[in-house]
Design a protein around this nucleic acid. Structure first.
Lengths: 218, 218
DNA sequence: TAGATTGTTAATCGATTAACAATC
DNA sequence: TAGATTGTTAATCGATTAACAATC
């Protein structure tokens, strides 16, 4: 995150595919490959080769070589830089219940440039404990602690009913980006980045696709 | 899920917004409202009024009344039917670890027409136990049990390395739709619906937006 | 050199938004 | 009736794909 110097005129779709490229390329590198063509990437990732080339072109520093392809190491380095994985950003998580503690226990976020430095909950049984190596504080301390720790990213994993208030407190403490796992749509100022992780939306899309498939076979 | 009679020519984007409309309308209904205009919905949900009307138009049965707006009860019923929430579909979940047990403990899926009837794991400490009221079976039984239970939806919450094999076994048992929470991209036949829940992709989009906001203020 | 692959410009496709007639 | 709101057609915007020249 941190210092992505160039300002992004890159589509959300492209940004969203970058982590998948990164995972794929790392795997190839592990298998001892050093060079790969957009055609090969496209085939394995079920994309079109043009799209792969267009996506990869946003990593300013990397250029493919006609006839040969792209240097895998170079691409990995470029994507890491593009996504800001090279310098870690601090975050806090609010709601150390089921989903919250699952996220706290997930060690992979560090690879994605995210470091959860504190958690909050209103349950006295959780306050003061550690979950996934992260200390849980009283939810009443959100604004104060977020400000003191100078945190810019907040993760919300509280029940729907509490989500808006939590969001307001995070923003009050200086948070500028909210990753919202609650099934509630938050009302926030324009200059706050919000990403809703709407499970119901995902499930709806999957279910409709399933219905289509089953229907088309009848 | 179940019996969505009409075949969907509805965009993924529209389908994805439906659960948000539903939540919003239920809330309004709870507040005692009976009628609402597309303008009001749009304002609260930060959408455009035209988009709201276009989205709602896919619910064949519902028609708004010029000057008045839409009947809230009618809309709720229509969206429930559209999304197939009126008849529940069975699913299985593989990987009863952190994220898996969080999902098993989440009672809300039933409202979304999803009923998790069995879980699987390879950890002997979990097999035979119940998590969130759902029994955990040995992962070696996936295909057999899925077939016997006649399940069509599989949820994957295993580590990356195991995801492809689990997917293959689910499909082998007759699953036709996979909700994949593993950071792995699955290779599956054309006629299987897949929805990847790629946390890294979401986080990347959020981080880029944050970087833009912070940059634009400097 | 010949052939494979890149990188870019133009065309297409899909989704959103603007314009406006219909109507309660 | 007058005014607000719906529903639809056309225009715009954004993302993907096709076409093709450049090049190692």
């Amino acid at each position: 995150m941190g210092n992505n110097r160039e300002i992004t005129n890159v589509s959300k779709a492209t940004i969203g595919r970058m982590p998948a490229y990164l995972r794929y390329l790392k795997e190839k590198q592990l298998q001892g490959e050093r060079i790969i063509s957009s055609t090969a990437i496209a085939e394995d990732l079920r994309l079109s080769a043009v799209q792969v080339r267009k996506d990869l072109s946003v990593i300013g520093s990397v250029a493919g070589k006609p006839k040969l392809g792209f240097g895998i190491g170079e691409l990995i380095e470029g994507i890491n830089r593009f996504l800001g994985y090279d310098n870690v950003t601090d975050a806090v998580l609010v709601g150390a219940g089921g989903l919250g503690s699952a996220l706290l226990g997930y060690s992979g976020f560090k690879n994605y440039g995210l470091n959860i430095v504190a958690a909050f909950d209103s349950d006295p049984a959780l306050i003061g404990k550690e979950v996934g190596g992260v200390k849980v504080f009283d939810a009443s301390q959100i604004s104060r602690l977020v400000r003191r720790l100078n945190v810019r990213i907040g993760i919300i994993t509280v029940p729907k009913a509490a989500a808006q208030q939590v969001a307001d407190e995070l923003v009050g403490g200086g948070v500028r980006a909210i990753w919202n796992f609650a099934a509630a749509h938050l009302i926030l100022p324009e200059n706050i980045a919000v990403k809703n992780e709407d499970m119901a939306a995902s499930l709806a899309i999957l279910s409709k696709r399933l219905a289509e498939i089953l229907y088309s076979e009848k």
